[in-house]
Structures are given as structure tokens and as C-alpha cells.
Design a protein around this nucleic acid. Structure first.
Lengths: 219, 219
DNA sequence: CGAAAGTGGATAACGACTATCGACTTCAGC
DNA sequence: GCTGAAGTCGATAGTCGTTATCCACTTTCG
């Protein structure tokens, strides 16, 4: 079970493999997982056949690509658990996680969407959940979070902020911070007035452009 | 410019028109705007051709169907503005609006998604915005809402709770109430601890089922 | 009763994507 | 430098789901 033994790829083949991976990373990040293998091939300056030869199944490509990125998230969770102040840790985790998602549409879809295939990635997600739950429980015990907040609420929070990401990514990539803040305030035990909301709300014309940009597809 | 004059439809034609409208209402509500005219035809026990004859363009059908429903929303907004307590009015509006959306996927998509075509519906949406903005401004003046909250935040709130709707509709249709509550608490001037969160958070097994149900499509 | 209006649903036209194949190019080792 | 194994390219065939048309047939209404 060598980690990455297989056969030693020929030099040009290896170069193409990298090109494909790089192109895929770029396209997934900016356009989401829906990009076709054709798109990726063209973007990598490589024939479609080459892509199919190397990654017969798109899920294999996704797995290969995102394994690393997803582990970043796992590290983040573990590191946040170290934090002496559990509330602080929770905030750090959510901010970090959403920051990654803001920078990579594909990652967001992988994390919050359906797992289908992509075994490795799905597995990591399952390992993150208990860690973050522990973080939440601790923050609750420390009296920083409402007593009736539960782990499921953290998933919901990511869904909600994820929606902001989808709608506003083009117009105001940083808008999600504002609503993460609102949400955290809503979940905290004593919601103080102090710290102002980060980043301004969308103005009327920005709202229009979001609405008509078809951020949410339809038919 | 008679409102609905045209030609007086033949009796059977009129009956079919109604059937189509009814079937469309049902399917849009439970499956969203993406249902095909074929689906609608079959569900209405009518030939596909009949549907196309009556509504050459799907947008026309949507317009015809949702004009009324969207006006309900406009009424709701106006009525909420009457409320002496602006905060109360705001809550009523958001709850009412989201309740409608929870019951009708199509309506939700129409309100929060792209307007493309569907002139009438889009117009009403534009009339609602200033009303709700006024409501917000008043609630802010009354000191119930944080001073830095803006009208755009209400749109964002609907996007966020709308995401909860999309994810959890099958598993727990009422879950959105919990997160509207959290959000409102986050936006309110003094977030008191009192009133407990309505409806429980999703448990681990429910989360799994949401994740794997592919609530959010991908490829 | 007959003309006008309306109907059904097989099927053509489409568009987007997935996947294959085989003539051709490149590499690595002798 | 030659050779054959490894690798490449991209036109194109196959699928799938949807939109839209057409016309022989049925229904309505005066």
C-alpha cells in the first residue's frame, strides 16, 4: 500500500499531470466544481484525452486536489481547540474555515454540499465535526455561548454564511464577515453592543446587481 | 388595456388553463421553478402542446401564477408598517415572508433569485424594498435595532435563512425559525438572553441526512 | 351540422457534457 | 540514432434532459 508509488510517470506525462492539477485548482476555486473536464483540459493546454487518461473519474481528480486543502481545515480545527479561550477558538475556526471557502468555491461546495464519491474528503469532514463540537461544548461551559446552542448550529451557521458567499462573492467578497459577526452575536451568551459590525452592508445598487447577476441559478 | 380581456376562451380551453395553473402551482411549490413544462403537462393530465399553446414562455406562466402570491407579500409589508412597534412589525414581516417561502420553493426562488423576465413579479419586489427599509429605519430610531444595521441586512437575512430552508426543508421544515431568531438577536440593540431558541437544532444523524441528500446540487 | 378552436403526444431540434479511439508524437534506454 | 513503449490530441460519437413543433383528430358553439 505505498502511498504514491504506482509506476514512475514519464517526464512529459508528469509535467502534464501537474498542469492539469494546477488548472483544475484554479478553475474549481473560481468557478466551482461544475467546470467540465474539457474546460480543465483547455485551460491546462492539454488534450481532453490526456485528462481522461490521468483521471478517468472527475471525483478522483477532486479527491487528489482537495485532500490537502481539507486537511488544512482539520489542522485549523485542532489548533482552535488548543486555544485557552474556547469562544476565541470557536471564532477563529469559523473565520478560518469561511475564509478558505471564500477563496475557493470548489472547497465550499465540497464541504457543504453532497459528498458522493470523494471518499477521502468526506472522511475528513467527519473527523472535523467532533472536534468543533467539543469546542462548542467548552465555550458553552465557559458561559460564553447561550446554553441552548448545539453543534448543529455551527453547521447551520456555515450554511448561512455560505449563502452570503454565493450571493455576494462578485460584488463584495468580504461581506460574509459582517454576517458571521451578526450570527456569532446572536449565539453568544451576552450579546454586548460594543464592537461594530465589520464591512458595510450592501447598498441598494449593489443589491440590484446581486439580484440580476443571477447569483442563484434557476431553470 | 383591459386587465384580462383578450378573447373569451372556449369552455374546455378554460378548464385546461385552470388545470395547468393548478398543476404548476403545486409543482413549483414543492419542486421549485426548475420543473419542466412537460412535468406540468403530465401532472395536469393535458398534452404538452396544450401547455405551450397557452403559455408559449415559461416566464408568462410564472408571472400569471405568482402575481397574486407576490402581492400577498406586498400586503404583508404594508401591514407590518402599520404596527405601532416597529421592531414587532419587522419581526412579523420577516416571519411572514419566510413562512411563505418555506411553503413554496418557487416563490422563494423568485424572490431571492434572478428576476429575468417575469416583469410583474420583479416590479413588486422593488416596491417591497422601500417599505421594509422604512420599517427598519423606524426600528432603529426606536432603539430596538443596532445603529449600524441597514436595509441591505434584511435582504442578507433572507438569503441566509433561505439557505437553511434549502438544506433542511425535507428533514425539518420548521428549522428556519431557529435561525431567524438567532439572526434577529444578532441585529437587535440589546440582545437579551430571555426567550429560548424556537425548535431544536439538527442532531448528528439529521445533519448526515442533509449532507448526503444532496440538498445542494453540484456537478 | 360545419367551421373555428382546441388537443395530444410522438418526435425533431438543441445544448451541454462525458467519454472514446486511433493516427501521430515524444521519451528513455540501448 | 533507433525502436518500441508510453503518451498525446481533438474530432466525434453517445447520452441526457429540456424546449418546442406539427398535424391528424376531437370538441365546442352558433
Amino acid at each position: 500500500m505505498a502511498t504514491t508509488s504506482e509506476k514512475p510517470l514519464r517526464k512529459d506525462a508528469e509535467r502534464n499531470r501537474r498542469r492539469i492539477l494546477d488548472a483544475a485548482a484554479e478553475l474549481f476555486a473560481e468557478r466551482g466544481l461544475a467546470v467540465t473536464l474539457n474546460d480543465i483540459a483547455h485551460h491546462a493546454d492539454v488534450g481532453v484525452g490526456t485528462v481522461y487518461r490521468r483521471f478517468p473519474d472527475k471525483d478522483l481528480l477532486i479527491d487528489a486536489l482537495f485532500e490537502e486543502r481539507v486537511h488544512e481545515l482539520l489542522d485549523l480545527a485542532e489548533q482552535s481547540l488548543e486555544c485557552q479561550d474556547a469562544w476565541q477558538g470557536l471564532v477563529e475556526f469559523l473565520e478560518g474555515s469561511l475564509e478558505l471557502q471564500a477563496r475557493d468555491r470548489g472547497l465550499k461546495q465540497l464541504l457543504l454540499g453532497t459528498p458522493q464519491g470523494c471518499a477521502k474528503v468526506g472522511g475528513v469532514r467527519e473527523r472535523i465535526f467532533p472536534i468543533v463540537s467539543a469546542l462548542l461544548v467548552r465555550a458553552r461551559e465557559e458561559g460564553r455561548v447561550r446554553a441552548d446552542v448545539e453543534p448543529g448550529d455551527l453547521a447551520a451557521a456555515q450554511w448561512m454564511v455560505g449563502a452570503i458567499l454565493d450571493y455576494s462573492r462578485e460584488v463584495r467578497p468580504e461581506l460574509w464577515r459582517r454576517y458571521l459577526h451578526v450570527l456569532l452575536r446572536g449565539l453568544s451568551a451576552e450579546a454586548t453592543v460594543h464592537d461594530p459590525l465589520p464591512v458595510a452592508a450592501l447598498g441598494p445598487q449593489e443589491l440590484d446587481s446581486v439580484m440580476s447577476s443571477g447569483a442563484l441559478a434557476r431553470r
